[in-house]
Nucleic acid binder design. Structure first.
Length: 125
DNA sequence: CTTTTGACGCGTA
DNA sequence: CTACGCGCCAAAA
């Protein structure tokens, strides 16, 4: 049964890990690229952005709930940032001066038990 | 195998 | 506030 995590040879790859984690961000909350990266082994903030940029059309993940560390929507998001802001505002997220207050809307992340069970990093070393 | 391509983060000036 | 540099690295071609 090789279901243990194998560094360097993950069955799904880093991008798939990112997608699964992003899929758990609840409506009305946001996560930052760096935050997601801190939970995915071998991943950096940039990789998260690249992963989302490479998201195949048709897969249903809340990509719009991932923003940068300053609480702003990235300018190169597909289709324009206004669309992403609209999606977030539709979930009740308030923008002040074009920013989201992470202290109010930042996601705390999944339960550590879920992280451990699915091979993510529980602590950011 | 090599090269290109990027939704970032953070320190510094 | 702006501007710049550099670290970081998987995936696709």
């Amino acid at each position: 049964m090789g279901h243990q995590s194998v560094p360097g040879r993950l069955e799904d790859g880093v991008y798939q890990r990112v997608y699964r984690l992003v899929a758990k961000i609840p409506s009305g909350r946001v996560a930052t690229y760096g935050q997601i990266a801190s939970m995915v082994p071998g991943c950096t903030a940039r990789q998260v952005g690249y992963a989302l940029a490479a998201t195949p059309d048709g897969i249903d993940i809340p990509w719009h709930r991932v923003i940068n560390a300053r609480g702003e929507v990235s300018t190169r998001s597909g289709g324009g940032e206004s669309g992403q802001k609209k999606l977030l505002a539709d979930e009740g997220i308030v923008f002040l001066e074009g920013r989201v207050r992470l202290q109010d809307y930042g996601w705390e992340g999944p339960d550590w038990r879920w992280l451990e069970k699915n091979g993510y990093r529980v602590f950011p070393d």
